[in-house]
Amino acid sequence: MLENMLPNLYLNWFFAALLVFSGIYCMLVSRNLLRLIIGVELLSKAAILALVACGQAMGNLGLAQSIAITMIVLEVVVVAVGLGLVVRAYRQTGSVDMWKFDRLKG
């Protein structure tokens, strides 16, 4: 039973890793704050996929699902607050360009 699950686990983890890479790449490359939020979103999708894949492989989907549900709820609040910050930054500076935020320097 466990052995049957393993190929699936590889596959899921492989795709989760690809999603993590895309998310981090997006966050590194972009200057637009909204694109950074897209990167955060992709990262948390990868985390949910990885969690459920692990739960399936170890045979306790109940635990994995309950963790994933909590994770999703947290994600929505964090993203909502992040979008709130972005809108606030836009109202203060008239821009969502990260390069405009350079006031704090050592």
Binding site: I37, I48, Q56, A64, Q65, I69, V73, E75, V76, A80
Partner: peptide
């Protein structure tokens, strides 16, 4: 497809629904 319907329902309603609206 992975037999995790509860997480799926939450993902659909919260991530696909709510976050998209906010975004």
């Amino acid at each position: 497809e992975m037999n995790a319907p509860w997480a799926g329902v939450f993902e659909l309603s919260v991530c696909a629904g709510l976050i998209t609206v906010l975004f």
